[in-house]
């Protein structure tokens, strides 16, 4: 299978700070769906940021879609980032634009004709079940709907890779499962999906490959559910 992402002994350190990731190596093939898990501060977000070139590795090599990111010139970054669909915990929508304009933005940046843009935006909104909400402003929508707008914006350019950072962090369980099922559908259609998440129940509901981070290292441990955590505490008390 084609390799889409490769990390070779990658470390990242905040300027003047401590290591967030150290010596991380893994490889993700095209068409995979992967969870990135681990406690807060373990480096999940940093790992996704490295792939989207929102920051650069301090040591080691990150190769994404055949591109060695350490040699990519800063002015080439926008072009590179256009090939990735990004989904965020806080949605990162433009709140003074309609749903349609938000989803259309990546296409406007690339310079498609308005006829094409209209067609693709409606197809993307249809894929997330928001076809009737084109003219709405994001703040009039529920959190789950806003996140689906964010997802529609990420898939409207039909990227080969979607990176989602805590996409369900602000959603109720029902919405969260619906959003995860959406990612699963995109994955089944051939998109490589990486999701950083805390949501153990969702991981258990939709089992996929899991990269688990602790203190900046990849480990074989698996995330602990809150229910088990309570048992641990009881043992501790008893």
């Amino acid at each position: 299978m084609n390799e889409l992402i490769r990390f070779d002994q990658v470390s990242y350190r905040y300027p003047g700070g401590q290591d967030v990731l150290s010596d991380v190596s893994f490889s993700i093939a095209q068409g995979e769906m992967v969870y990135v898990t681990g406690p807060s501060g373990a480096g999940k977000t940093t790992l996704l940021r490295l792939i989207a070139l929102l920051c650069r590795a301090t040591r080691g090599q990150v190769v994404v879609m055949g591109q060695n990111l350490s040699v990519l010139k800063p002015r080439r970054i926008p072009e590179f980032r256009q090939r990735i669909g990004l989904v965020f915990q806080n949605f990162n929508l433009l709140y003074d634009r309609t749903v349609f304009d938000n989803v259309a933005l990546p296409l406007v940046i690339r310079g498609y004709t308005y006829a094409d843009i209209g067609r693709r935006v409606r197809a993307a909104l249809d894929a997330v079940g928001l076809l009737g909400k084109e003219r709405a402003l994001p703040l009039t929508l529920s959190g789950g709907e806003q996140q689906r707008v964010g997802i529609a914006r990420a898939i409207v350019t039909k990227p080969a890779l979607i990176l989602a950072d805590e996409p369900t962090g602000n959603l109720d369980p029902e919405m969260a499962l619906e959003v995860m099922r959406g990612f699963q559908r995109f994955n089944e259609a051939g998109v490589t999906v990486m999701i950083a998440t805390h949501a153990i129940d969702l991981i258990e509901a939709i089992p996929q490959r899991n990269i688990h981070l602790e203190h900046g290292h990849v480990t074989d441990k698996r995330p602990t559910a809150a229910s088990q955590l309570r048992e641990h505490m009881h043992h501790g008390l008893g």
């Binding site: 989207a52 929102l54 072009e79 990004l86 990162n92 433009l94 940046i109």
Partner: peptide
């Protein structure tokens, strides 16, 4: 914020 979002989704500076 809008500019940050634009940069996140790959808008070049000239855009």
């Amino acid at each position: 914020e809008e500019i940050e979002v634009m940069k996140l989704i790959g808008a070049p500076d000239r855009f």
